[in-house]
């Protein structure tokens, strides 16, 4: 898994580079145009990558989480209920990405907290190990909070993600959702 995740896809790396340039109070029109162009040119790649990585990670968490099939089913149902509660179906694409991220981080938070409490009661556990796992739990909590904040902000701003789909004839269909 480590090898798969360490390979950062080129569109994402480029986006991060461009984003660093515009991450200031008043970015210029030219800089914003560059972001817009990069996003619209690579949207389908971003979405495909995101869905793929989220499925991979979610499966990994479920695998780590428990060997019980019943518990895994319960988790899947819980995730589906949360997705429904957050209005997944009627949301825009960017909102759906953020909702998936919230679900993913909530699963991770749950799993890492259980692991931490199990370690606490396990005899012979070193204090340094507990500190390390506690830091991982804090990181998961912080990512969860950030994802919730971003979803709120994106919804407040009413932002839609533009998607370009290449057709067989080489034409681009532009969808706004």
């Amino acid at each position: 898994m480590e090898n798969e995740t360490n390979k950062q896809p080129p569109p994402a790396t480029k986006l991060m580079e461009i984003f660093k340039k515009v991450d200031k109070e008043y970015p210029t029109e030219q800089e914003l145009k560059e972001v817009q162009q990069h996003l619209t040119e690579n949207t389908t790649e971003f979405l495909a990558l995101q869905k793929l990585s989220q499925n991979l990670i979610s499966n990994q968490i479920k695998k780590t989480f428990s060997t019980s099939e019943e518990l895994r089913d319960d988790l899947a149902k819980g995730a589906e209920a949360l997705r429904h509660e957050l209005g997944y179906k009627s949301s825009s694409t960017i909102e759906q990405l953020l909702i998936d991220e919230i679900i993913l981080e909530s699963l991770r938070l749950h799993q890492i907290q259980l692991f931490l409490s199990e370690l606490t009661t396990r005899p012979g556990t070193q204090l340094l190990t507990l500190k390390k796992v506690s830091d991982l739990a804090s990181a998961a909590q912080s990512r969860f909070n950030k994802a919730v904040q971003m979803l709120t902000q994106v919804r407040k701003a009413g932002i839609k993600l533009q998607i370009n789909i290449a057709t067989a004839g080489g034409k681009q269909i532009n969808l706004q959702k």
């Binding site: 986006l15 991060m16 990558l49 990405l97």
Partner: peptide, 13 residues
């Protein structure tokens, strides 16, 4: 994964 998603959302904002 988180960095990428939030970067896209922030770019859109």
């Amino acid at each position: 994964n988180h960095t990428l998603i939030t970067a896209i959302a922030e770019a859109l904002l």
